[in-house]
Every structure is written in C-alpha cells, then in structure tokens.
Design a protein around this nucleic acid. Sequence first.
DNA 1: GTTAATTATGCAGAGACTGCACGCTTTGTG
DNA 2: CACAAAGCGTGCAGTCTCTGCATAATTAAC
Lengths: 216, 216
Amino acid sequence: MYFPAAGVPESELGLRERKRLATERTIERAALDLAQEHGYEGVTVEMICESAMVSPRTFFNYFGSKEGVFLGHTPPRPTPEMIDWFVNERPSTTLLDLVELFRRMMSTRNRTDPAAMRERRALIHSTPDLAVREFARMAEAETELTALLQRRRDAVGAEGSDVFPDEPRVVVLLAFAIMHPAMHRWLEDPDGAPQEELIADSLQMIRRIIDEPTHS
Amino acid sequence: MYFPAAGVPESELGLRERKRLATERTIERAALDLAQEHGYEGVTVEMICESAMVSPRTFFNYFGSKEGVFLGHTPPRPTPEMIDWFVNERPSTTLLDLVELFRRMMSTRNRTDPAAMRERRALIHSTPDLAVREFARMAEAETELTALLQRRRDAVGAEGSDVFPDEPRVVVLLAFAIMHPAMHRWLEDPDGAPQEELIADSLQMIRRIIDEPTHS
DNA sequence: GTTAATTATGCAGAGACTGCACGCTTTGTG
DNA sequence: CACAAAGCGTGCAGTCTCTGCATAATTAAC
C-alpha cells in the first residue's frame, strides 16, 4: 500500500492531487469549526491558518477570499455542453429550461460530500453576513445567465423584444424564485422527493401565489 | 448675500446642517466623477478625500464604507406606518401589497435629486462590482421583508404553513421580479408612464412567461 | 537522475475600516 | 456677550483582507 494500486483508478489522482485535497479539507474543517464557535466576523484568516497549520498566503491560494472558504470556492457555472443544450436545443419553455439548467448546475458540483454541504448551508443561513454574500454570488450568476438568455433568444429569432427589454432578467429572477424553495427542501432532505418533483411543487406554489384571489 | 437671508425658511436648517449637506455632496460628486474616470476598483478612498479635501476619517464618518458613497448611504427601509399598513390593513393580495410596499419604499428616499440618482444608477449598472453590491443590499431587504411577511401571516391566522415553509421567501423573490423591470423603466424615464402602470405591465409579463406554451 | 511544473511559504505593502483622543465650531442659555 | 454643552473634523495607531514577488521544497515527467 505504499504505492498506487492498479485496481483503484477512481480515487487515484496522484500524490499531488491527494495532498491538495487533504489540505483543502483541513482548511475547510478548521474554518467551519471556528465559525461555529466565534461566528463569521469573529474568525480571522490568521486563526484559520493557525488551526490548519498553513500560512495565510496558502489560504488565499486555495480560497481566493475569506468568504470563499465558507461559501465554497467554486461558484457553480454551466458547462459548455449545458450552454449548448440551453441555447440551441431548448426542448421546453424558456423558463422551464432555465430551471432545468439550474438543476444541472447544482447537481454538478457535488464534489463536496452532502453532509459538509448541509453544515455549510446551515452556517450561511444563520449568519446574515454570509447570507448576503451568497446572494451576491447569485447575482453574478444572474448576469451570466441573462447573457445566455439573450443568446437563446437570438438563436430562435428575436421578436417583440423592444416591448420588454429586460425580460431576460425577469426570467432569471423567476427561475431563481422557483429554484429557491426546491433547493432548500432538497438540502434538508436529500433522500426525499426527487428534484423534479420539488421543482414542480415550487412552480405550482408560485402559480398559486400569483393568481391568489383578494382575500379578507 | 454674505449672510442668511430671512426669506428662506424652507432650506434654513442651521449652519451646521448646511455645512454637513455641503461636504456630503462634495464627497459624492468627487466620488462619482472619479469613478467615471477610473472605475470603481480604480478609485481609492484616499483619492476621493484628496479631491473633496476632507480626511479619510471624515469620509467614513459620512458614508460608512466605500460602496456607501456609490450606492447611497441610506438603504431604503419601510417606515413604521408602512409596516402597520402591510401587516394589519392588507387591502389586497399578499404579493400585490408587497409590491406596493416596495413602491412606497422607493418613493420615500427621494431626498437626492433624480438626476444624480440616475447618474448613480448608470454607474452601478455599468460596473459589475457595484451591481453585485447593490444586489447584496437587496438581499438585506429580503431578510427584513420575509420577517414582515411572517408577521402578516400571523396576523391573518396561519393555515397550511407547514406545506411550504419558505413561501414567504418566494413571495419576496416574486415581488422583486415584478419590481425590477418596473423600477428600471421608471428610472430611465421618470416622466413616462406612472409607476402603477409599469408594475401592472410587469405583472402581466410575468404571467405570460409562466404560462408560456411550449414552443418550437 | 535531471529537468520542468506545482506548491508552500515569507515578506512587503496597499487598501478598507475602527476606536480613541484632541481641538475647533456651532448652538443654546442666561 | 460669555460660557457651557454638543457636534464635527481630524490625526494616529492599529487590525484585517488581500496581492505581487521571490524563494525553497516537492512532485511529475522524461
């Protein structure tokens, strides 16, 4: 067991990669533990580094920023295949396809184990400061996705786009609104209802809210 | 003209207040001008202070942060009257009332003249970094408004809230989606269609997007 | 085993931001 | 007008995040 076995092609990534992942996880653990105790503001990068036994410079080499270690350093981005699918294939409604694109993006970044992911999630939602940052990240994605919507519209042949010039942005916001509760419920119970169902529920809820009759 | 005239009771706020507003505007002007030239990242607080002839410490006394001077130092918040109206009166749908609450919040903070407001707006939207920050601010409002929705629901008597525990959050997101294009169009043409009409248009657009038939 | 790419680290420094104390100006009061 | 109270502008020291650069050690590739 001192050298790579031939029958373990899956997690055999070379010594370098393995070490990298190890320190990455060490830093993450240290950061999360310290945040549980002192809160986001109460933790300094220096503290994290001391606990993880790495230099501050190394910390910033791994996660580009302090928030990076809490939010996850890889913001979910669509792969070229996904982009092509969304822009050119477009099997369903713009909105529904966008939601599906979201779903795929989320599913992709499962490199971290779901347990740590949930822990991270809990910390984010219990720390207003982090929640805000997370929202800011979403905003980045929003910009990118809006551009994608433009490409899709161009591909299908624009029509009547002058009437509502910022329709793409609204579509993205709507997709967010649909994804939000679905993602939330899924993170709380990953083995519960399948994602498609959660999304369908969410869509139904939104329809109900919009068409809600005036009460009282 | 060397001393205060007696016939100007409106803007007579005392020497102190006037000076305060003066330096505030001086700093704002300096910041906006410098940002036009060098971009948000390219401007340092020190540069702004040098241009406005105040100490950095003073800058932070006025606007608590660098982004503060660009985004406006007073994030729009609902007044107690508005809160009461929303929680207890609730003349219409939850969603529509929330949109109306938004509209009122936006209308309130017209202490800055609309011209500078639009200039600021243009800068924000042309600077991705600032756009993100603005979104983060919205997120703060989101949290606050979600709490408000809970209060409203409690006031009306909760029912079936277990099915969709994060319905309030979705309502807020939807209200955002409705407000967004309306606000946008209003800022681009303040003397055009009245806000109510813009909102109605926006709502209609959203209905269309959600019910859009599968095409192609 | 030698060379090339990665990686970890230290160091210097920019830039945002805070608490504190001190001095000046404005304000209110008699 | 004098005098005290309050508010404001400022300098200073210091913390914290984050970056560029140089260097040494490690791993990979040949």
